[in-house]
Amino acid sequence: MSVSASALDVLRRNNVNVSGDASGRPIVFAHGFGCSQQMWRDVASGFVTDHRVVLFDHVGAGDSDLSAYDRRKYDSLHGYADDVLEILDALDLRDVVYVGHSVSAMVGVLAATHDPSRFGALVLVGPSPRYLNDVGYVGGFDQADIEAMLDSLDANYLGWSSAMAPVMMGNSERPELADELTTSFCLSDPAIARHFARVTFLSDNRRDLARVTTPTLILQCTDDVIAPLTVGQYVHDSIAGSELVVMSATGHCPNMSDPGQLIAQIRTHLT
């Protein structure tokens, strides 16, 4: 397979890593807000024997190309959805199993409704189409909660710019900082983190759910404050023909806390 120059740019921009069985059904893992493709480490390993496994970082996260972060493009989840479509295009994947965690569940919904042709299945892990409560809808959070979250982000990044900015700008005088950065999977530029947080937690994609035509599995955790059970039920009710499974895994990150259960659920759904 030959890959065009622009395809290479896409693969580099999103730090795309492909492994597993090249002839197997492609499975793409998309990480949520706050971390990088590293979150999928223990889940992805469960698919390499019989799937073509694709991992990537959203622009602004992990080892993606930070210079590609265009605030206009990434001011809505559509920007991230376009990147997903470009990755599928660059690798020329068909019948893709797209596994999206947290905000990337909605990114997958937007990508698959914009161009369903390459998608075979959507697996939405802890999805939420809207985090803010609204009339007749419980998202789990008020505007003040989201502002508090942004405060929290900022408070934890107060010292960031002085310590990390030289690394981002390629300061070769302090190579030890560069090492530190590459091992800090979940660090990113605070301005980007704040913007991504806003876009993640203030978006409202409820309308898009009804347009999904790709077979969809919704995996919900027990006691997930970020995506409560009622929200999972809402997503299930809004996507015709979808399947909802509530896992015994707790918290918001079953891909890290209980990878085995996640692998088993996805596999059951695919067979």
């Binding site: 706050g34 971390c35 959070f141 989201i146 934890n156």
Partner: peptide, 17 residues
């Protein structure tokens, strides 16, 4: 709630990794 969001999305993953 703000700290919960931050803790679940950013701290826990780092702690695990």
């Amino acid at each position: 709630v703000g700290s919960q969001l931050f803790y679940d999305t950013r701290c826990l993953p780092v702690l695990r990794l």
